[in-house]
């Protein structure tokens, strides 16, 4: 259950009031007739599925009924920012990774069971383990 700041109502509301509408900033080609089938197919069907920062379109369906954008981290589910239609995000995958780099934060590589542990893949490839498993 997300707690979402609606940039139009200017307060946080419960997720029940909102509908997610997919990836944000998908623009309809200005001249559809000039699009190749492939380009049109991309517009219709193809979406990003990043591990990390993602910009999403939502609507405050049970509320002001306004569409707006959410920048959300798909691993932590943290909402990094919400902004109105027509505005550009200030938090992006690039800005986040730069900030992390400056702060010396190690980027997660996935699959770690506990903080400070080696990734499974690395542990499994360890020569001493290979020996032990025989």
């Amino acid at each position: 259950m997300f707690h979402i700041y609606c940039p139009y109502c200017e307060e946080h509301r419960e997720e029940e009031e909102f509908h997610p509408k997919g990836q944000a900033h998908i623009q309809r080609p200005a001249d559809p007739e000039a699009c190749s089938d492939e380009a049109w197919g991309d517009y219709l069907f193809f979406r990003d599925n990043p591990r990390g920062v993602h910009h999403e379109l939502w609507v405050h369906a049970v509320g002001c009924r306004k569409f707006f954008n959410i920048t959300r981290h798909t691993v932590s589910y943290e909402i990094l920012e919400t902004y109105k239609m027509g505005e550009a995000p200030t938090v992006t995958a690039k800005s986040v990774s730069e900030k992390d780099k400056q702060a010396g934060v190690q980027a997660a590589t996935g699959g770690w069971q506990t903080v400070g542990a080696r990734p499974e893949s690395e542990a499994l490839n360890d020569a001493s383990n290979q020996g032990a498993r025989v």
């Binding site: 069971q113 506990t114 400070g116 542990a117 080696r118 542990a123 383990n129």
Partner: peptide, 11 residues
């Protein structure tokens, strides 16, 4: 059994 530490095995 896996000759690892507990944090390496994880929870």
């Amino acid at each position: 059994c896996l000759h690892r530490s507990i944090p390496e095995v994880g929870t």
